[in-house]
Design a protein around this nucleic acid. Structure first.
Length: 289
DNA sequence: TCGCCATGTCCAC
DNA sequence: TGGACCTGGCGAT
């Protein structure tokens, strides 16, 4: 599930479900028992995403969470009048947070730890600009891209270059812009980078609003219309983390479509391991020549 | 039931 | 660059 949009949506959801009040914290699985004990009863003040990192401020403590490849952290409402309280955790729950009428169960994170302000600053400092951060400086990313011989498809996956992009967005954005993923960073022009950045800042907020990666143009247009007229708000609010990605049909241009026809030209979508993950692209639409 | 795969990252060689 | 690790779901057996 988790590219940057997931973490930003999660931060919003945590803050609206638990913000400004004490939370009960526990570790049903036991692997975070002492950490949970240290935050139990503390007021959850803010939850902030930086790329794929989540920081939860609980009074003077900072909870750092990274979902990795397989982590989930659904926030669900429960009936506060039910004498049984929230439903018992199922599966392997590293951390459970309980508020007035919400419960959130963290499973399978790569990182779940209490850290200090210095550590947090160090993590944030290492990250490239995040397209979901209004203050992000895309030039910082271009400076790195511009002096690299690695392909743009590999560079987009590096969190020091751009924060929050993962395998789906890199494949899809490059196809949307007809960019060859193997174009060396040094050959990516400033205007080509500007287009990529602009595409990221267009698509990622839709991913946050719908908790789903949307890259098919018809879906993007429909999602933008819903954001503009306010009809997405109800959906954003009711997406509980349990049934995410159900609003739009799951469809992609290239991602997991190896061997299928490119929707632009009919050529077979190719796939190959790049930067540790399977890259998907159209060798025809996305060729430099 | 088993094994493999996944929108991620780190570390050892 | 290959493998380990976090966990759950799904297709193959």
């Amino acid at each position: 599930m988790p590219e940057g949009h997931t973490i930003h949506a999660l931060a919003d959801r945590l803050e609206s479900a638990f913000g400004g009040r004490p939370v009960r914290a526990s570790s049903p699985q036991g692997r975070f028992s002492s950490g949970a004990a240290r935050i139990d009863g503390h007021v959850l003040e803010t939850a902030t995403a930086a790329g794929k990192h989540l920081f939860v401020d609980l009074e003077d403590q900072v909870l750092h969470i990274h979902l990795g490849l397989i982590g989930t952290f659904p926030v669900r409402p429960f009936d506060p009048d039910d004498p049984d309280g929230p439903p018992a955790p199922t599966g392997t729950v590293r951390l459970r947070l309980i508020g007035q009428e919400h419960v959130a169960d963290l499973r399978g994170p790569m990182t779940c730890a209490l850290i200090d302000a210095d550590r947090r600053a160090a993590i944030e400092q290492r990250l490239g600009p995040d397209p979901l951060d209004p203050k992000a400086e895309p030039d910082r990313a271009f400076a790195r891209i511009n002096k690299s011989r690695k392909g743009i498809g590999a560079l987009l996956m590096e969190q020091q270059v751009v924060a929050g992009i993962g395998n789906v967005y890199r494949c899809e954005v490059l196809h949307r812009l007809s960019v060859d993923p193997f174009t060396p960073g040094a050959e990516v022009t400033e205007s080509a980078w500007a287009e990529i950045w602009s595409e990221l800042t267009r698509l990622l907020p839709l991913g946050v609003a719908f908790s789903q990666i949307l890259t098919m143009e018809d879906q993007v247009v429909e999602a933008e219309r819903m954001v503009a007229d306010g009809s997405s708000e109800e959906i954003t609010r009711t997406l509980t983390g349990e049934r995410l990605g159900d609003f739009f049909e799951r469809r992609f241009l290239t991602y997991q479509r190896a061997g299928e026809a490119c929707l632009g030209c009919g050529t077979c979508i190719a796939s190959e391991q790049v930067a540790g993950r399977l890259l998907y692209w159209c060798p025809q639409c996305q060729s430099r020549h």
